[in-house]
Amino acid sequence: MKTQYTHNDIAEMDRIKRLRLINSITGVKPANLIGTVSSDGHENLAIFSSVVHLGSNPPFLGFVLRPHFEFRRDTYNNLEQSGYYTINHVPAAHTEQAHYTSAKFDEGESEFERCGFTPEYLGDFPAPFVKEAPVKIGLKKVNEIPIPQNGTLFVIGQIELIEVPEWVDEANGKLNLEKLAIAGISGLNTYYKMTEVGDYPYARVEDLPDFNKNR
């Protein structure tokens, strides 16, 4: 037996059930901590699962910010002030700490301090990284695109700095996420470890295996 939901079914669904279903329907997403700092020096850290690759030349990443008018949005406010932020992969051993950065702390409280993470500044980059993160990315905001249908913002950043452990800076540039022991998120609060299941060559039609021979 399988369950089907129409658009009307989803619209009439219990709010919590709908939230859980739609947030998990896309599968496992990257777990990242975004670090910012206000103009008066207050550091902020928040977990996001919406980071996406937009291109490698120039190197752009994007992420989604929920409506900033709902309640105080320190990440949004800090981005408006400085224009710089960091994206830090969540280590699988630190998922609980990372999860609680989403709590609504009082203004001026640091999620770094309350959740047991260490702010780290690399060179002259103006936003704080997470010292415990195995992959650290520093970005400059280059655009924000309002999504009027739900009031969210799609923020686009240009990568200015990357730090990875020396042992994973392989000749081909690929990062082994399993060896880095980073986490992924399904929905709002379920975390997964990464396991590599395959590593395939660039897809060319002339190299296509016969996928139908054993059907």
Rank of each mutant, 00 (worst) to 15 (best):
F117D: 01
D210I: 08
I87D: 00
N8M: 11
K104R: 15
D124I: 08
E80S: 13
P67A: 07
G123I: 09
G173T: 09
I162W: 04
A46H: 08
G62P: 02
D9G: 03
M1W: 11
G138V: 04
E178F: 10
F154K: 00
E144R: 07
A203W: 11
N8L: 14
G123N: 13
P146T: 04
A103V: 13
V90S: 01
E43S: 11
S102H: 05
D199K: 15
I159G: 01
H53R: 05
F112W: 03
E178N: 15
N23S: 15
D14Y: 06
R20H: 12
Q149S: 15
D199R: 13
K213I: 14
T6C: 01
E206R: 08
Q97M: 10
A127N: 09
E196K: 14
R72C: 04
K213S: 15
A103W: 13
L153E: 01
G35C: 06
N88V: 02
E196T: 14
V135I: 14
L54R: 11
I145P: 00
D207Q: 14
M194P: 02
G138F: 05
T86L: 03
F48N: 03
E12I: 00
W167M: 06
K136H: 00
V90P: 00
L54D: 06
P67Q: 07
L153R: 02
E166H: 10
I137G: 02
D124T: 11
F129H: 04
P67H: 05
D210S: 10
T36E: 01
G83H: 01
L45Q: 06
Y200M: 11
N32K: 00
P58A: 04
S38H: 05
G184F: 02
M1V: 11
G184C: 07
H68K: 05
D124W: 06
V164S: 05
F48W: 05
D124E: 12
T26Q: 12
D40Y: 12
K140I: 08
S38R: 01
I156D: 00
A98F: 03
D124F: 09
P146H: 05
P126V: 08
I159M: 13
L79T: 00
H53Y: 13
F211W: 15
H7V: 12
L177V: 08
F63L: 03
A203N: 09
L139A: 15
Y84A: 01
G151K: 04
H7Y: 12
D9N: 15
E196Y: 04
Y84N: 10
R66M: 12
H42M: 09
V64Q: 03
E107Y: 11
L33I: 03
E109Y: 08
H99I: 06
I10E: 05
F60W: 13
R114C: 09
I159D: 01
I145S: 04
G83D: 00
V205Y: 15
Y84T: 07
A181R: 15
N77M: 06
H53Q: 11
F60E: 03
